[in-house]
Amino acid sequence: MLIRDKIQRNEEITLIKGAALSKNTKGRAKMEELEDIRTPYMIDRDRIVHSKSFRRLKHKTQVYIKTSGDHYRTRLTHTLEVSQISKTIGKGIGLNEDLIEAIALGHDLGHVAFAHNGEEVLNELLPGGFKHNEQSIRVLKYLEKNGKGLNLTEEVLDGILKHSGFSNSSKVNRAITLEGQVVKYSDKIAYVNHDIDDSIRAGLLRIKDIPEELINILGKTHGERINTLVNDCVYNTLDNIDKGILEVSLSKDIGHALAQLRKFMFQKIYLGSILKEEREKAKFVLHNVYDYYMKHIEEMPHIYKNIVEKEGKERGVTDYIAGMSDDYCLVLFNKIYVPKFVIY
């Protein structure tokens, strides 16, 4: 018996009825031969980890654009925290951890430099708008491997596409697998809490600033809040399944508390006055780099010039800009616009 068969047999024995079994995958856009050891979801996870876009996450900002500290989150460390939280929830429920891990590791590959400020800029400039979850799919299907894409399974792509938003109330935005739904909640659990942690470290937020009623429900410390939310997600989802409802969710009170905590962070930190000046600087840089390449298509890498020919200038330049790390974007801005010493 092949090792892959043993792994898939173990999935049938250990996972709950509503879990996504790798042997039942809807497959890939391009059919591939099965491997002896790895299941399709294991292959997808490994392809994402070894991709260039995954490695670039280490230099993409989560919230704070430029820091001198080593302990502030980046888009990469956020991704790893989402993966850890979602695998814990998935294991507690009895779901496919390989599928969960693949979705979690790939969910933010389409994020732009300079946190959500970059997404706002490209959303203004690209006809039809720009969303990082949709860009993640473009990265995985059309941009990785010099335009060949990674040819991932439908379940992984669906979970990545539908990780945005705050609830599963709309079936249109709900992942087709419970594993994908787990990642959606884990993303919010991770970023709301680790952004609080980073904000306190930066001296921009104090624990006493957080509404007391939310602290009383979710917990005072970072670990307490994560534990409350993870436990609630596991037990509430198991309760849903016992009732015949195949849906991942938080309980009403805990879900409301997390939503209010997220709202507080948007008002105080994400869109607050504290970081307004740095947000505007980041947008200025991106606007000008975008404008430059709209006028100098010939200077972009070959893959993006091909996209310009097939899908237009705005799409090609957007794909190029969206893939940049914060540091690379700043290097290009300085190269393009900052005067150099030519006489010594």
Rank of each mutant, 00 (worst) to 15 (best):
K52W: 03
R262C: 06
L21A: 09
G129F: 04
P211N: 02
D44Q: 06
A29Y: 04
L99R: 04
K141A: 00
G69A: 11
K17R: 14
N236C: 15
V342Y: 08
I274P: 00
E314A: 12
L218S: 02
V338W: 00
H107L: 05
E134T: 10
D239A: 13
A175G: 11
P339A: 10
G18V: 04
N288H: 15
C329P: 04
G110N: 00
H296F: 08
L218Y: 09
G149T: 04
L150N: 09
H222L: 14
V338L: 05
L15S: 10
S83Q: 10
K310H: 08
I215E: 05
M300Q: 05
N334K: 14
I274G: 00
E12A: 10
H296D: 06
K66W: 12
S273K: 15
Q84H: 09
A282I: 08
V82Y: 01
R9Y: 13
T39Q: 05
Q62P: 01
E11P: 09
S251K: 03
Y235S: 14
Y328N: 08
I196T: 07
N10D: 14
K171V: 14
E35H: 08
I65T: 11
G323S: 02
G272M: 03
R75S: 11
C233N: 13
Y41Q: 03
T228M: 13
